[in-house]
Computed example of a mutant assay.
Amino acid sequence: MDMMSMLTEQGRREAEAVAARPVTRLLDHEGRTAVVTGAARGIGLAIARRLAESGAHVLMADRRTVDLERARSSLPAEWQKRISTMEVDVTGTPHVAALADYAVERTGRLDFWVNNAGIFPPSGPIRETQVEVLDRIYEVNIKGVYVGCREAARHMGRGAVILNVASIGAIKGQAGMSGYSASKHAVLGLTRSLAMELGKDGIRVMAIAPGLTVSPGNEELLDSIQQAGHKLATLSAPLGRFNLADDIARVALFAVSDMAAMMTGQLLVVDGGTTV
């Protein structure tokens, strides 16, 4: 049997259309709309920057308007006309729903949703862990991502992509970080389950697992590692350095692009080989 005859007619047309496009067009997102949470700094800002560079309309969301406007103004002027901002707390379900609605009202479509907002406070030794700390981690890192996926999926159609920012904590243990690690395992499980559920609608769901990344958001984590007596040099990767935020952003751009059109439910690890 001819392999192409095993595809649905719609699947065949989509596969042939992607295969016929030059590589530069596979990374061209002109006319598409993206939402990035936690976009005011670090990995979120880097992802928003690369999506805007690729031609997408980008809606940057974070908790403080002043931080968002500062981030937006740091981008090239020619991109700023394609970028808007919205103050959003991802733990507030109505806020996330309003974010998705606004993205669609603004451009008439929603193609990419990046659940980047998250927190990573050390939960400490399990015998000393305060439940209140766990509640906050799970509220942001699990509930926030879950609701983001739900609200995005309400507006998405074929070819759309949800990208969840997980962590190497989803595949590698770390003493004193059990609460955070558990939350990122949940993100990975959610990604895989939604890939199965939404695949029939042509929606891909992917996850990315950064290793230790040098960014404004992780000074507290780096300090806690040093205070715990760990030498940062011992945590470095075979490639000899920690991630920069743009290392993550470039892989994120690949994950949502048609370069990865046949990938869903997968975790892309970006850690320079730390977990090898």
Rank of each mutant, 00 (worst) to 15 (best):
N218Y: 10
N218F: 06
N218V: 13
N218R: 06
N218M: 13
E219H: 08
E219P: 01
E219N: 08
E219S: 14
E220M: 09
E220C: 01
E220Q: 09
E220H: 11
L221I: 14
L222Q: 07
L222N: 03
L222G: 05
D223W: 04
D223G: 02
D223L: 04
D223K: 08
D223R: 02
D223A: 06
D223C: 02
S224I: 08
S224K: 10
S224L: 07
I225C: 12
I225W: 11
I225M: 12
I225K: 06
Q226Y: 02
Q226H: 04
Q226G: 05
Q226V: 03
Q226K: 09
Q227C: 01
Q227N: 06
Q227S: 05
Q227F: 00
A228T: 00
G229I: 00
G229M: 04
G229H: 00
H230K: 07
H230I: 14
H230R: 12
H230N: 11
K231H: 13
K231M: 12
K231A: 13
L232E: 07
L232I: 12
L232Y: 09
A233V: 12
A233P: 02
A233F: 08
T234S: 13
T234N: 10
T234F: 03
T234P: 01
L235F: 02
S236C: 14
S236V: 15
S236M: 15
A237M: 09
A237S: 07
A237C: 07
P238K: 07
P238W: 05
P238D: 10
L239P: 07
L239C: 14
L239A: 14
L239N: 06
G240M: 08
G240D: 06
G240T: 13
G240H: 05
G240C: 06
G240N: 07
G240P: 04
R241Y: 04
R241F: 03
R241V: 02
F242I: 01
F242N: 04
F242Q: 11
F242T: 02
N243M: 10
N243T: 09
N243R: 09
L244K: 06
L244G: 13
L244W: 11
L244A: 13
A245T: 08
A245M: 00
A245L: 02
A245I: 04
D246G: 08
D246T: 11
D246K: 09
D247K: 02
D247N: 07
D247H: 03
I248K: 00
I248A: 01
I248Y: 01
I248G: 00
I248S: 00
I248L: 00
A249Y: 02
R250N: 07
R250A: 08
R250E: 10
V251G: 07
V251D: 13
V251R: 07
V251P: 11
A252T: 09
A252Q: 03
A252C: 05
A252V: 11
L253R: 12
L253V: 04
F254W: 15
F254D: 14
V256H: 03
V256R: 06
V256E: 08
V256A: 05
V256Y: 03
V256F: 08
V256T: 09
S257F: 01
S257V: 06
D258G: 03
M259S: 15
M259V: 14
M259A: 15
M259C: 15
A260W: 10
A260F: 14
A260C: 15
A260N: 14
A260P: 09
A261H: 06
A261R: 07
A261W: 10
A261K: 05
